[in-house]
Design a protein around this nucleic acid. Sequence first.
DNA 1: ATCAGCATGTAAGGCGTTACATGATTCA
DNA 2: TGAATCATGTAACGCCTTACATGCTGAT
Lengths: 181, 181
Amino acid sequence: MAREKKIDMVILGLLSHEDLSGYDIKKRIDSMISFFWKGSFGNIYPALKDMEEADLVKKTGTSDNVREKMTYRISDKGLKILKQWLQDEQAANELRYETLLKLFFGGALDKSVSITNIELFEQKIKGDLKLLKGYCENLKEHTENADHLYYYLTASFGVETYEAYLKWCIKAKKILKNGVI
Amino acid sequence: MAREKKIDMVILGLLSHEDLSGYDIKKRIDSMISFFWKGSFGNIYPALKDMEEADLVKKTGTSDNVREKMTYRISDKGLKILKQWLQDEQAANELRYETLLKLFFGGALDKSVSITNIELFEQKIKGDLKLLKGYCENLKEHTENADHLYYYLTASFGVETYEAYLKWCIKAKKILKNGVI
DNA sequence: ATCAGCATGTAAGGCGTTACATGATTCA
DNA sequence: TGAATCATGTAACGCCTTACATGCTGAT
């Protein structure tokens, strides 16, 4: 079983819920998934093409009907691959925070630079947290769709960790200002 | 100012503290930085070579003296580049958690699969948290080095977020078992 | 003697981003 | 009528990972 490309799994996962075009897949990723996984046209469209050739998805619509979106549907084979991946215990969980990298080397400059970097991070997180909280509230009100429970769990992960980030920001700024732990 | 390669900044940052060989750089990254930024021989050695050609670092030691490690020292130009990067307000902060991706699509299988995935994540985090806590304790005891304050701040970021992860794990498992938010 | 770890690298491939190209449609 | 957005793609490049290749050194 060749190492699956992760973008393939994202696409198969989305198609397991509903038929979608490449463009719509991008929109779904941006609105619901992007805080823990990203996608771009530059990898979505080629992935769809490759997966069509491998019979993991097939085109629907556009049966000579020009000016209709090209939508894709997951195949039985595609669904099997998706389920295999979900059950695979391997999981690459990676954090790459340039802000922390800069902070780690902050001693090379005045501490005010590090404080500014933390404040920039803090503002970005505050904005994203607000979005995630709104998203969570929406999901709580629509429990008729069983998948919403899963969406909620991922969004609540974001809320809880972002709140921890903000607490850390306050503490870190204080430590820097005082110069002692 | 061309877009800096991030591994270059990691290396320059480490060299701003002390002269190091490629091998030692890898060890430093693995032990102190890897939870928020990674590096491999495959990108460290080529980066050192490129930066030597660009006069950002220069070789020290090994002056015909065979069987001595090839160590590198940061140059004034290298230090300038490092400081520019530290002051640049752009910062790529990216989370890529396959565990969350699998959870998002967990509705395709029985909830027990998602619970297992959360538990695997939980165990991994528990182990890493223990390491980070030990690291923090060590840093608290050696405040004579001013840089240790910065190391401590990044490590405490890890401790706080990992603790938030563990709280979320417990909550998420409960929600899945009950089937309601 | 042999095995782990020190030490330096190269090559191939994977995967992703960014920018570019193209054209239709919708709305102000 | 012009701008924004819908919609699909390609090309080039960037950066990293993995695996491989090589040889030394120190401990058991």
